[in-house]
Simulated assay, not measured.
Amino acid sequence: MTNKIFLLATFIGVPLSVIGSLLHWSSILMFVIYCLTIVALSSFMGRATESLAIVTGPRIGGLLNATFGNAVELIIAIFALREGLIGVVLASLTGSVLGNLLLVAGLSFFMGGLKYKRQHFNVFDARHNSGLLMFAVIVAFVIPEVFAVSMNETKTLTLSVGISIILIILYLAALFFKLVTHRGVYQHKNDVGSHHEEEPEWGRNKAIGILALATLAVAYVSENLVHTFHIVAESFGWTELFIGVIIVAIVGNAAEHASAIIMAFKNKMDIAVEIAVGSTLQIAMFVAPILVLVSLFFPTSMPLVFTLPELISMATAVLLMIVISNDGETNWFEGATLLAAYIIMGIGFYLL
């Protein structure tokens, strides 16, 4: 039933997005249409990556899901950069970190915990990811803020570019470590062969084709969505910070939200955790640095400098996630704790 709704929303939303854009419909109406269309398209991306996850296994499947889920946000962010909306882009990066670690993981732990008393995942992956989270968010994001206090804009941008290059190199090294040199070394005993027990909804070629088409459609809709931000913000009294942290982050990560919850409900916690944490790492160590480098080609460049509320919120989310996930098991109450933290931060950003 849910799949039919998303299918209907896609076949209605995409034509409406094109027609509304050509006929210059109300920006608020188009904002709603664009958001719903992106969510519908993201559902197909989620189903396609779920099919690929069954074929390739939890680690690569989770990585694919995070990558294509973040592709939506990367596309939105690039168009926002072109419009000079630096605050929205930085806020959307913050929102992605908070959304993945608190909202996606929280909903996954909570929904899965309602069905299962205790759910387990690979504790070695959790501890490995904890170190990367500490580095990517707390070290790489806080350092530019600290040094930017006594630097001019040119030096701050130079520092941001240097950090971005280091982050990309380390992220690629982390993938090489996890998928090549140490693939299977820390594999949980329950993971072995588990992904062969279920038949994928779509074959590999069909899943890849759907991913490609959905990504192209999202790129078109996202470009138009960005143009509605100013009017929507003025109409509802929202700040750019709130739009980026909450609205763009939720819409941009819709595919991951749905996939992670479905995986948790099926007791596939390795994939659910890999989607939530792996996506955060990809945002912090790959997407954010790429956006810094891409911004160099636009009139307004983007330094990797966040506001104090953004930094404290991200650091808090990282520390909370590490404390909860380092034992390799979850329950519904831990999910509720993560969700409560997200709601508190959301209220703060709304009132800021």
Rank of each mutant, 00 (worst) to 15 (best):
T2L: 15
K4I: 15
F6I: 11
T10A: 10
F11C: 11
I12F: 10
P15F: 08
L23C: 12
W25S: 05
W25T: 12
S27R: 12
S27Q: 15
M30K: 06
M30N: 12
I33N: 08
I38Q: 08
E50D: 14
T56Y: 14
G57C: 13
G62L: 06
N65I: 05
A66W: 00
T67F: 14
G69N: 06
L74Y: 03
I78D: 01
L85A: 13
G87L: 05
V89I: 06
L90H: 00
L93T: 04
T94C: 15
G95R: 01
G95M: 01
L98R: 04
G99I: 02
L101G: 03
L103Q: 05
L103Y: 02
L103I: 13
L107N: 07
L107V: 08
M111Q: 07
G112I: 08
L114D: 08
K115G: 03
K117A: 14
R118W: 07
H120L: 12
H120P: 01
F121R: 02
N122R: 13
N122L: 09
A126I: 04
R127H: 12
N129P: 03
N129V: 07
G131D: 01
M134V: 14
A140G: 03
V142Y: 11
V142W: 10
F147D: 11
F147Y: 13
A148C: 05
S150N: 09
S150E: 11
N152R: 04
T154A: 11
T154C: 03
T156N: 05
T158L: 10
L159A: 05
V161S: 05
V161H: 07
V161R: 12
V161C: 11
S164P: 09
L175S: 08
F176P: 06
F177G: 02
Q187D: 14
V192G: 00
H196Q: 12
P200F: 04
E201I: 14
K206T: 15
K206I: 11
I208R: 04
I210K: 01
L211T: 02
L216M: 14
L216V: 15
A217N: 00
Y220N: 01
S222M: 06
E223I: 04
A233D: 08
S235V: 09
S235Q: 13
G237N: 03
W238P: 09
F242R: 01
I250M: 07
I250A: 10
N253F: 00
N253L: 02
A255N: 05
A258P: 02
A260Y: 06
I262D: 07
I262L: 11
I271T: 13
V273E: 12
S279K: 01
V287K: 00
P289E: 13
I290Y: 00
L296Q: 12
F297C: 07
P299M: 09
S301R: 11
P303N: 06
L304Q: 09
V305T: 13
P309A: 02
S313M: 04
S313Q: 11
T316M: 10
I322C: 01
V323Q: 10
I324L: 05
S325F: 10
E329Q: 14
W332Y: 13
G335C: 04
T337S: 11
L339N: 00
L339H: 00
L351I: 09
